[in-house]
Simulated assay, not measured.
Amino acid sequence: MANVIGIDVGGTNLRVGVFEGHQLIQETRFQADFSHICHTHSPSQAWEKIISITSTGIRNVLVQFPDVQHIGMGFPGFIDPNTQTVAQSPNFPGLDHVNLAQDLGEVLQKKVIVENDALAAAYGEYCLAGKPDTGLIYIGLGTGLGGGLIHAGRPFAGQHGVAMEVGHIIVEPNGRPCGCGNNGCVEQYASASGVATSYHTLSGQRLSAYEIAQRADDGDALALEAYRQAAIYLAQMLATVVKVVDVPNIVVGGGMCHAWHLMKTAFDIQLETDLIPVLRGKLSVTPSHTHDIAGMLGAAQLALLHNTHLS
């Protein structure tokens, strides 16, 4: 079985995994603060740096695995399923209508498939769960908040690549401004950056979500409140989503999974309150137990799926 590369792009790092089937053979991490680059450079300069950093990282891996023919990448943003262009990336401002698959493929001289990062993670979780017939919803809690839906065995991106962009469901009318251009999106409250903003509002201190979780574990009331608020907004959003997409399996992943124990009680209470009665007690909401490889695996498997579909 030929090796496949799956890439997971985060706000501050780039993770490149080499897979044989579902088995991770090697993972390499690169510092790649694309968010900072986009905030401090013009769009064209930022794009050049992103392509340069990404291609260099992948090339280093290809030296060890020259037989790789398929490369998949999960990238945060609205990915047009027909053209593979990044229509917009709310957390990487300025990256509008850039063709990541084409530009990166030309540099590497290999075909690259690009999918939304949360959709890639959803497919990875789906594969590792044994491809359940009932499908799966994935909620990714990281710097931002993403979602992915696997339905009838296929990733569902929607007509314009914005299906399951649940982070941009408005939960607080006229609330905090969001990178997507709206205000009050759940991403601004239930993501790592949202928790940091909530804690700053409550305490006047600027800390990372990880540091806030440590304080919460030590009994800091304001840190606990920041995570409680995140849990409530997340549950309200998810209760809305499952009323539209009746899928019983929900996996919560991303970097904030380490703090799920701080959110679970408030989340469960709010979800039970907001669900319609027919759905109460029928959802399975679990934190990911895939050691954070789902994004890379899903990207790799989607690259294979895409090429199989074309052949």
Rank of each mutant, 00 (worst) to 15 (best):
I139Y: 03
V114G: 03
S89W: 10
H261W: 11
M296I: 02
E115G: 00
R176S: 05
R154M: 11
L271W: 11
G105A: 06
G140S: 13
G219D: 07
Y227Q: 01
E27L: 14
D268I: 08
F75V: 11
K282D: 03
V61R: 04
G253I: 13
Q109F: 06
V4C: 03
E125F: 10
S193K: 13
L141S: 00
D246F: 11
G298F: 12
V98W: 11
D103S: 09
K49N: 01
H151L: 14
Q214C: 04
L302D: 03
L238E: 08
A87G: 02
I53D: 07
G74Q: 07
R15T: 03
L128R: 13
K49V: 12
A196D: 03
Q236D: 05
T240W: 09
V107H: 04
A303Y: 13
S203W: 12
I79M: 02
L141E: 02
I50S: 01
L271K: 10
Q88P: 00
G253F: 13
G72T: 11
I25S: 02
P155M: 10
A190H: 04
V171M: 14
A101M: 06
T201N: 10
V242E: 05
V241P: 01
G255V: 08
C178Y: 13
H151N: 02
A101K: 07
I53Y: 11
A192Y: 12
L136W: 06
I5G: 02
G184S: 05
R280N: 04
G194S: 08
T12F: 10
M1V: 08
L119D: 05
Y199R: 01
G295K: 06
V68D: 03
H306E: 14
Q214S: 08
G184P: 05
Q109Y: 06
I293G: 00
R154F: 05
V242G: 02
G194V: 09
P277D: 05
S288D: 03
L104W: 10
N3M: 12
D96F: 13
W260S: 00
C185V: 08
G10T: 09
T286M: 10
S89D: 01
E125L: 10
I51E: 03
Q229Y: 06
L262Y: 06
Q84K: 11
A213E: 11
A231L: 05
G295Q: 07
S44D: 15
H261A: 09
F34A: 03
V162Y: 14
G146Q: 07
I250E: 01
V247A: 01
G153M: 05
V171Q: 12
S44Q: 15
C257S: 11
A32Y: 12
I51G: 00
V68T: 02
A235T: 09
R15Q: 06
V9M: 08
A216G: 15
L14G: 02
D33I: 05
A32L: 09
N182Q: 15
P132V: 10
P43T: 06
A32T: 05
G142A: 08
F30L: 12
A120Q: 08
